[in-house]
Amino acid sequence: MPSETPQAEVGPTGCPHRSGPHSAKGSLEKGSPEDKEAKEPLWIRPDAPSRCTWQLGRPASESPHHHTAPAKSPKILPDILKKIGDTPMVRINKIGKKFGLKCELLAKCEFFNAGGSVKDRISLRMIEDAERDGTLKPGDTIIEPTSGNTGIGLALAAAVRGYRCIIVMPEKMSSEKVDVLRALGAEIVRTPTNARFDSPESHVGVAWRLKNEIPNSHILDQYRNASNPLAHYDTTADEILQQCDGKLDMLVASVGTGGTITGIARKLKEKCPGCRIIGVDPEGSILAEPEELNQTEQTTYEVEGIGYDFIPTVLDRTVVDKWFKSNDEEAFTFARMLIAQEGLLCGGSAGSTVAVAVKAAQELQEGQRCVVILPDSVRNYMTKFLSDRWMLQKGFLKEEDLTEKKPWWWHLRVQELGLSAPLTVLPTITCGHTIEILREKGFDQAPVVDEAGVILGMVTLGNMLSSLLAGKVQPSDQVGKVIYKQFKQIRLTDTLGRLSHILEMDHFALVV
C-alpha cells in the first residue's frame, strides 16, 4: 500500500459497493488471473465517493441489488447463522422517566444476534452475496479491517462455511474481542490505534497488504460494500417497522461504517417519512454534520465500534436529520445504567446512543415513540467499562463513588512517597548505550525526554532486548525507535489509591 493515498477510480455505471474482489474501477472485475494482476490496485480507499443510485421515491424494481426479506425461524435451526436477525424490541421503562421523557422509549437489542452484535447481519450478508456472485469459493481466505464486531461476525460465518479468516484490528480494541476471535479460529493482526486510516500501518493498510500477498484472499470491505446497508434496509428496518406496527417518530443510532443508519433510515424514509433520524458520533470522530460539531482538541476516545477519521463510502449522511456528539463518560455511564436499571447487557456504544436519545427525544410528546439501536453486548468489555477499576483509572468514576473498604494508605498523596527525580535518556542515544546505562543503574525503564525536557515516551529494558533479539533494531539504532509513546501519567497530588489502580493494569506510571 502506498504512503500517498491515490484516488480510487470510478467506473461508468453500476453501484460502487459490489461485493467481491475490487477492480481499479471499484466494481467486480472478471477475466484471467493475468488481467486481474495487471488491473487490481494495491488498495482502494474506504472513503471513495459513493456511486449508489438510491433515491427517495425511486421504484424498488430499479435497484441493481439482490434483495432479501426477513424469514421466520424454524423450530430447529440448521446452523447458528440462522440465529442472525429477528432481534427483540424491548421497552426501556426507567431511564426515559428518569430523564423526563414523555414518549415511549424502545430498544432494538442487536446483541441477541448469534455473534453478539449488529455486525453479524452485514457479515453474513457480505459472505452470502460474495458466494452468490462467485467471488468467494471453498478454501478462500477472508481478510477484514475491523474494530472487532464485524470480525467476530465474519469469523463466526467463516467457521460454519469453512473459510480461512484473518482479522486486522487496532490495538485499542478489547482483549475479549481478541479472545472470541481466536476461539472462532480467526487469525488476528493488531495495528497502532493512532495510525491514520490511509497510513500503511493502519488496520485498513495492513489488511490490503495481506490481501496482495495471500492468494485467493478477499477483503469484503464493510466500508464500501453495498451488502452492509442492504442488510439493514432489507431486514433490520423491516423488523423495526413490523415490531412497531409502522408507528415510530424517531430513530437514534450510533454511527461507525454508517451501514446501520443508512440502511434503516432509507427504508424508514420510504415507509415512515415523518420519522426523524438521529445520528450519534463520538467526540474525536469526524462523521457528524455540520462540520463545526467535529471541532475539538480530542483525537482519541475509548468507546469502541463507532466514529472514524474518514467518511466511509457506505455512509449516506443525507438521510440523517440531526447529529449529536457523545463523550466517553456519558457513554459508559449510560451503558452501566442500562445494565443495572433495565437488565440490558449492552456495550458502550449503546450507552452513547441512549445518552443522546434522552436529549433528542425531549421534543417528542406522549403517545409518540423513539427507537434506539443497541449494537453489541457487554461480553466484549468485561475488563473495560464493566470494571470499576478501569473506570477509575480512566477518570470516568471517582473514588467516592465506590463504597468498598480501602487499605490505610489509600488516600495518601503520591508526594508522600518522597520520590527522587528519575533517570532520563535522550532519544538520540543508541539502544546499546541505553541498555548499558539501565543495567549500570539497576533500572528496568526510563523516560525519554528531548533537550527541552519534554517527555516523549518510555523505554524499557525488556522491550529493547526483545527488539534486538527479533532483529527489529540494532544496538547502533537510536533509542527513539523503541519508545512507548502511550503511558499513564500521575500527579504528586493524586492518591496512592489512584496509582494502585493504574499499576494493576500497566507496568509503570510516570509522575509529573
Rank of each mutant, 00 (worst) to 15 (best):
T53N: 06
P41D: 04
T146N: 05
A60P: 11
T191M: 01
N149T: 01
S174M: 00
D35L: 05
I95G: 00
E34C: 06
A38N: 09
V255M: 11
V180T: 10
K97E: 15
M250I: 09
G151E: 00
G116I: 06
D133K: 10
H66F: 11
A226Y: 09
L154G: 01
G151L: 00
S117M: 04
G85C: 06
G263Q: 01
E40N: 10
N216Q: 07
L210T: 05
E4H: 11
N113C: 10
C52E: 02
M89T: 07
L220V: 01
P64G: 05
G263A: 00
Y163N: 00
E4F: 04
I142T: 04
P12I: 05
H218P: 04
P49G: 02
V10D: 05
P138G: 10
K72I: 10
Q55V: 11
H203K: 03
K39H: 03
D221M: 01
L56Y: 09
V252A: 13
R182D: 05
L210K: 12
E110A: 02
N93Y: 05
D79N: 13
L220R: 01
K119R: 05
K25W: 02
N216R: 02
G57C: 11
G115Y: 07
K177R: 02
K83W: 08
E37Y: 15
R45C: 01
G115Q: 07
V206Y: 05
K269F: 02
A265E: 07
I240A: 01
L101V: 01
R161Y: 11
G139R: 14
E171Y: 05
R209F: 06
K211T: 11
D129S: 11
L124Y: 11
I44L: 08
G274K: 11
L184G: 05
P64F: 15
F99P: 02
A226G: 07
S23T: 13
R209S: 11
S19C: 04
M173P: 03
D249R: 05
N212D: 15
V252C: 08
T262V: 11
V180S: 09
N212T: 14
S175N: 11
T260S: 12
G115D: 07
G20P: 09
R209V: 08
S50D: 08
Q222G: 00
T87M: 06
E131K: 13
G115L: 06
L105K: 02
S123Y: 06
I76Y: 08
